[in-house]
Design a protein around this nucleic acid. Sequence first.
DNA 1: AACAAAATGTAGCATAAGCTACGGATAATG
DNA 2: CATTATCCGTAGCTTATGCTACATTTTGTT
Lengths: 158, 158
Amino acid sequence: MATEYAESILLWQQTFLIGGCLKEKVKARSVPFSKTRNRHANETAEDYVEAVAEIIEESGECRVLDLARHFNVSHVTVSRIVKRLQDQQLLYSQPYRPVDLTPKGAKFAKRVRERHAVVLAFLMALGVDKSSAQIDSEGIEHHVGPKTLAAMKRFLEP
Amino acid sequence: MATEYAESILLWQQTFLIGGCLKEKVKARSVPFSKTRNRHANETAEDYVEAVAEIIEESGECRVLDLARHFNVSHVTVSRIVKRLQDQQLLYSQPYRPVDLTPKGAKFAKRVRERHAVVLAFLMALGVDKSSAQIDSEGIEHHVGPKTLAAMKRFLEP
DNA sequence: AACAAAATGTAGCATAAGCTACGGATAATG
DNA sequence: CATTATCCGTAGCTTATGCTACATTTTGTT
């Protein structure tokens, strides 16, 4: 199934991104990274899981419209993506109900947020103004592998 | 036209990415950055223009199949993207002929390659091994704004 | 020149992410 | 409790990126 393949990529990515912290075994397909479409879908998963965690932390619950406003897209777009992330067992949602993280999603969100925080702090420590650092870190974070992340941490805590 | 809008976004991005080096005037639409689809299309433009420049430099000409092998996608995918970049006047191509950069594309490629080189050198200077730095820099480069780029340069040449 | 091989193009399908328009469900308010 | 406003789902369209299968053009060999 296509979904199964996407799932595989997702897990592969998770393992990559968070330095092998998740324990789930994944058969590494040889070429996932050259497939832009899947890579982008995965960045979306990271962004959404991160946003859900933040919004819940800030306001207690996360509605579809909160996400729509957060990403500046229509609620329809959010709806569809939430559905996919639910299939991937990262999010939990019921019709007309707030969105929540599954345990797997919460674990994923934790790592994504930590990595994001490191990248943001790193850029500011580099001398980038806060506003630029915030914008750039949101794009950069998805591409920071374990080695680069470790190097950023070393830079921050010498 | 949709094409016109995409063009506008492209130019907006160019201005952003290379720190306003291109002189072309662009009416800044208010929300382009939240529109993931256009942003991704633009990263693709950057990747392709960069690759075309490199391949021509290395082997004298750039065929569709060279790009297909470079990105590890089918020639069909390349074909369609080349067509779009030709519409955007970044590439020049004729049926069954090698692909070439337009003057606009060459200018764009120059900036993209310079930025990529800075990001790569920066990561290695940070202590990231070459292999990881190569992989990560290809993802990161698209999200490095002028301020971050300047900070990386300062780090490299104190 | 003819044939085979390689390169490219075209048709048609899938998935991801964007939208508007419309309808149904929930919540707030008189 | 009824009404209104807000929230959310569904239908259906678009563009971008992937694919396979097949057609066509160019190139290389005999």
